[in-house]
Amino acid sequence: MTAPQQGSDAKSNDSSSFVTFSLAEETYAIDVLQVQEVLKVTEIAPVPGVPNYILGIINLRGDVVTVIDGRRRMGLPDQAPTDQSRIVIIDVDNQNVGILVDSVAEVVQIPSKSIDPAPAVGNDQSSRFILGVYSSSDGLTILISLEKLLSDEEWELVRNI
């Protein structure tokens, strides 16, 4: 833990922790407080009649967890899972959901004042999920709103799988 810089006010130290992951060569981040755990890809049982971005379900210590494909949900090209692929178990509205991502990188602290508003670019499918953008020397990190990612009519139909 680092000590506050001398002369700085509390607002300048206001930051949040995010888990970063990649999808199609881009870096994304979600609030660390919503991440329950990160799993290696396991067998996913398909569920008929669900939207194409829902891969199916997994058994997580006796609980059934729906797994969505992060690439498909964001409107990105499909890619078969690799050794680096992970399922990020998140909690949204007291429901655990898995998101398949290409890889998980690290937990980062992002100062609130360094988050820029979501730009009006990209396809409508992905841009509506963007909370904001953080630019650093490592490049751009796209902050994702899980509530927006999992809040449409299609998703409501399958929340109780």
Rank of each mutant, 00 (worst) to 15 (best):
S8R: 05
S17D: 15
I142T: 15
D31F: 00
V64S: 06
T42A: 08
V97R: 10
L100H: 03
N13I: 11
P111D: 08
I110C: 07
Q5W: 00
D9W: 01
G98P: 09
A120C: 04
T66V: 07
T42F: 08
S12Y: 04
D116R: 11
G62S: 08
S137H: 08
Q34E: 10
V65H: 00
G75I: 09
W155I: 14
R73S: 05
V121H: 07
V38A: 02
G62I: 05
W155V: 12
L149Q: 12
G132D: 00
L150Q: 10
V101S: 11
L100N: 11
G62E: 10
Y28Q: 04
R159F: 02
V65S: 04
Q95Y: 00
I90M: 02
L140A: 15
S16G: 15
E153L: 01
K148A: 15
E154A: 12
Q6E: 13
P51Q: 13
L55D: 14
T27P: 04
I90H: 02
I110E: 04
D138Q: 14
D63W: 01
L39A: 01
I30Y: 03
V50H: 07
I90Q: 05
N94F: 03
L23V: 13
L140H: 11
S151Q: 10
L39R: 02
P111N: 03
S15T: 08
N59V: 04
V65G: 04
G132S: 01
L157S: 13
E156W: 00
G62V: 08
D78N: 09
V67G: 03
